[in-house]
Nucleic acid binder design. Structure first.
Lengths: 205, 205
DNA sequence: CTGTGACTGTACTATTTAGTACAGTAGAGG
DNA sequence: CCTCTACTGTACTAAATAGTACAGTCACAG
């Protein structure tokens, strides 16, 4: 990790590189774009990139953080302490997915592409944990509000909702339509609210 | 697509190449291993590979079909006309996942890595459709058996179960444990069986 | 002004890559 | 035994790749 930029000009340069790299890596895989591709897309030069990043992998790490921020911004329900509505979150997820042109998940797309690089793998796992944690917070608020069954464990439910989002996004991307994601999310919410269900609340291991 | 091998020796050679390529591409991404990596892992030579495949992409296509066959073999419940039990399928999925060392899905891992190659993309979409179709068949048998609600649309439910599998597999892989997959599958099944639910059976678009 | 450190442009290297050329060898059918 | 085709070994090429070297330019503090 090199020192962050200290001037405005430097911040713009670094941001241009990360934004372009994130876009390309999201679309073509973490290992897809070459350094030269990133430079061309960002309108910068090689010396600029290596001024802010030690290596290609260092750049990839910055991309992961950048993608996490994008996801969090697109799901404000997760950070609104006044929001206890799972369907509001559902709507935000669907809207973001539509806006992205039915793309893959900005973070989920990288799972399975970081197994060779422990550094990146641990960053990605950490980001997913934070995401699932925020989701668990929302579930807890919904539970306290009486909108999901009271025997639900928020942590387990958060992971389950995240799984529904990831799986639904994959199928929706393959078919280039949002229906699979919609059904996946709706079913997951049903499982948390149906009164005669009795599975989701198994204790964590 | 080159001609398939006609001798036993040729069949063994081709199979060794595809098997090694499948293993490597599953683990490191479709674009991960170089041709030379595949050759080293399969104990074959370059002239042998190009004798059976036109190009790297042609090899990748063969890998997709190979992975599909592996998945189908690991889920016999899908093809057993006597099986109407979603939980039997669930158990087979979990067993296969454990056996793989909590790996990513043999097919799902490639979604988002084929967007640049329309040929591969259409193959993968086709294979997923076949998978979802088999799953819909199982749901239909379960419905006729009275094991899921009668207002369920098997096609929609099949996609939903597949989404739960894919998403659960992703999280399970990240955490190197099967609990997330287990909860995801169980919740999906609950959504199909809970008597007071009312969402999953929305008509397809 | 002016020096200093942040930032940038350009040329280069060593390696790896997909794919080709071509001369072979193996082994089944005649 | 012979021959013909399937199959294989080895050497090569042209392009792309991550990363380095180094000489600059910019803008603000003194």
């Amino acid at each position: 990790m090199k020192a962050p930029p200290v001037t405005e000009r430097g911040r713009r340069t670094r941001a241009a590189i990360v934004t372009a790299a994130a876009e390309l890596m999201h679309r073509h895989g973490l290992a897809g774009p070459s350094i030269d591709d990133v430079l061309a897309a960002s309108g910068t030069g090689k010396s600029q990139l290596y001024h802010y990043f030690d290596s290609r992998q260092d750049l990839a790490a910055a991309v992961l953080y950048h993608q996490f921020d994008r996801v969090m911004e697109s799901q404000p329900a997760l950070h609104d302490p006044a929001c206890a509505d799972l369907r509001a979150w559902r709507d935000q997820v669907l809207a973001a997915h539509r806006d992205s042109g039915y793309g893959t998940c900005p973070l989920g797309a990288f799972v399975g592409q970081v197994d060779d690089e422990p550094e990146l793998r641990s960053i990605l796992a950490e980001l997913f944990d934070r995401w699932a944690g925020s989701l668990a917070g929302l579930v807890m608020r919904a539970r306290d509000d009486g909108r999901v069954r009271s025997d639900i464990y928020p942590d387990d439910a958060g992971g389950m909702l995240l799984a529904a989002l990831e799986g639904g996004t994959i199928l929706a991307h393959l078919h280039r339509q949002s229906a699979p994601l919609e059904r996946s999310l709706d079913s997951a919410i049903v499982a948390l609210t149906a009164k005669d269900a009795s599975i989701v609340h198994s204790q964590s291991d």
